[in-house]
Amino acid sequence: MRLTLRVWRQRNADTPGAMVTYDIDDISEDMSFLEMLDTLNEKLILRGEEPVAFDHDCREGICGACGVVINGDAHGPERTTTCQLHMRHFDDGDTVDVEPWRAGAFPVVKDLVVDRSAFDRIIGAGGYISVPTGAAPEAHATPVPKADADFAFEHAECIGCGACVAACPNGSAMLFTSAKVNHLNVLPQGAPERETRVLDMVSAMDEEGFGGCTLTGECATACPKGIPLPSIAAMNKEWLRATRKASRR
C-alpha cells in the first residue's frame, strides 16, 4: 500500500506546530496503525530527520496509552484503539490525517503526544476505594448482585485513553469521569465514599478546564471500550443525589 500521511509535527509545547506531508509505501494491510508509524519513523531516522513522537505501550488495546485522531476520528475509523487499528481499513493511495488529541486540558507535549495527567488528577480526587492494608478479602464475602457487577464491569472497561475528550466538541471529560464514578459507586466496596467520590471527581474535572457536556454523543461513539452514553446520565443522578445529601448536613 502507498499512503500520503499528513502528520501534526510540533517540536514542543511552546512552539507552534503544523501538518507535515509524508509519502510512504510498502505498507502491509496487516500492519497496525502504530506499526505503520514505526515504518515511517524508521525511514525518517535513516534520512536523518526527527522521528514522529507518539504514545504507545501494550499495543494490545488494553492500556490506553496510544491514541491519535485519524481523519478526524479519535482512534480512526474502527471502534478500537489506534494500536489495534489495522491498515486494511485504508485504501491504497489514501491521504490520512494524523493529529494529536485536541483539548485545552490535554496540552501537546510533542508531535502526537499530549499530557493526559489531568485524568490522573481526576482519579486522585476519588477514583479509588479507601481500603486499610492487609490480605485481600475473600471474594465471596461481599455479595454483589449480578446486574450491579455487570454495570460496574461495563464502566470498569474504561482504559482512560482520552478519546472521549478528543472527540467531544467541548473537550469535556464527562464520559471518562462517569465511567470511573459509576464503576465504583454501584459496588458495595465503593459505597462508603459514594457521595464524596462523585462530588470531588466532578469538581476536579471542572478545575482541570474540561468543557461541559452538551450530550452530542461524540464521546460514546469514539470510545474504543464502548462506555455507553447513558453513563453520563447515571453520573448526573449520582451528583444530584450527593449534592442534595451534602446540602442537608
Binding site: 490525517d97 485545552g104 467531544c168 466538541p169 473537550g171 468543557g211 454523543g217 461524540e218
Partner: peptide
C-alpha cells in the same frame, strides 16, 4: 466549552 477546545482539528467532519 469553547475555551476547553482552543485548537481545532485540521481534518474537519460533522457527525452530531
Amino acid at each position: 466549552d469553547i475555551a476547553a477546545r482552543p485548537s481545532k482539528y485540521a481534518h474537519k467532519r460533522r457527525r452530531t
